[in-house]
Nucleic acid binder design. Structure first.
Lengths: 207, 207
DNA sequence: ATTCTGGAGCTAACAGCGTTAGCTTGGGAA
DNA sequence: TTCCCAAGCTAACGCTGTTAGCTCCAGAAT
């Protein structure tokens, strides 16, 4: 990841907050609860029981449930940022856009409920570590090379991701092809992988 | 809207559920609460107070809060579907993709909290009127002309929309340009509006 | 005209939620 | 040895969606 600092990166990876052993244990248990049973199962009483305490005692370590969720989401953003920065530093045989999208999709899919929490409208984003979201999202700018296209690419990635996780696409859809359709639409021609199926291309891209 | 039936449409607009006067009043009040104060304010007790009753009485008209939200979301999908079908039937001077995206954005922006509810991961989509979501989303297929590209376009639209509503884009971003960047990426060249600003194109698109 | 019925309101209450107040306890610093 | 405070506890508050069970009245049926 250090390579990226000397590269195109203009933001830097924030320093994660230090956590006591008990805090780390709570976050670990919370992640387990969230992923195995869903957001509705992540309650203070259930979490407390999981680590052998009672709900009010959690407040000795986190000032609110929101603060605990912030910890979960910061983990998610560090994981996502690391994966994305790695993908731009070392894109595979496919183009950089394909590589970035594959990293994004793989990361989100690995912990779907944490991804949902991270991108939820209700989540108190203001409490996040300063600069973390910008750093995690920077690879989109690096790959797209231009602000508006990078935002559009990010929006495509998030939109496709959340619709996939929520099973909103028509049953039986080939989602690999959907991701690839977006990758092609947002790729610079020179960066496109060779042997790209031409049918997926928006017909007649050239003026 | 009837023109669309004879056109490319293969799905048809479902018949809305009939609502008693009291049900309609509740849905109207619920929408007001949702939009003016947000999802957290939409509680059975507050809604009941707004129409001059007590919370348990609502259950004489809707079997659960979820059923009431289904009514709100069905309204949203009918409104969205009507707007999108209208846009494909009568695209403006801009291309069909621009026109569709503009309709999508305008519709969602007009009732942001209802849009959030409609697209929320937690929403019980199974309770929706059969075929309603398919019908509302059909214009994306009509415009893109191909299944995967249409899904990618829909994903871009939703992603951009929810990020815009949640204020997730970098402060000061020109979101019109972001929408347009996506519109261009997903447009067939022949359909692109004339006089497209070349600067929006990713720099150095040529190899 | 009387009776019956059922839709639509009500109160009381339950379980679960996040959270707070206030008490206790034990281990390390002074 | 004393003191302090971090970290646990119980009880409780106000909120949530929801259920049980009662009442009341309009309109249909007799």
């Amino acid at each position: 990841m250090t390579e990226a600092d000397g590269g195109l990166g203009v933001t830097s990876r924030p320093e994660p907050r230090v956590r006591s052993a008990r805090m780390a244990e709570l976050v670990r248990a919370a992640l387990g609860l969230l992923e195995t049973e869903g957001a509705h199962a992540l309650t203070m009483r259930r979490l407390a029981a999981l680590v052998g305490m009672r709900a009010p005692s959690i407040y000795k370590h986190f000032e609110s449930k929101a603060a605990l969720e912030v910890a979960l989401v910061e983990d998610a953003l560090f994981d996502m940022g690391d994966a994305l920065h790695h993908s731009v530093a070392d894109p595979g045989a496919d183009g950089p856009v394909e590589s970035l999208l594959a990293a994004y999709r793989s990361q989100a899919t690995s912990r779907p409920n944490r991804y949902r929490l991270t991108t939820s409208s209700a989540f108190p984003r203001a409490g996040l570590l300063a600069g973390l979201e910008d750093w995690a999202g920077e690879p989109f700018f690096i790959v797209a090379g231009e602000a508006h296209l990078s935002q559009a690419l990010w929006a495509f990635a998030h939109g496709t991701m959340i619709l996939e996780l929520d099973d909103r696409f028509l049953a039986g859809s080939d989602l690999d092809a959907t991701w690839q359709a977006g990758a092609i639409a947002f790729s610079l021609p020179g960066d496109r992988p060779v042997g790209e199926p031409a049918s997926l291309h928006p017909v007649g891209r050239q003026p």
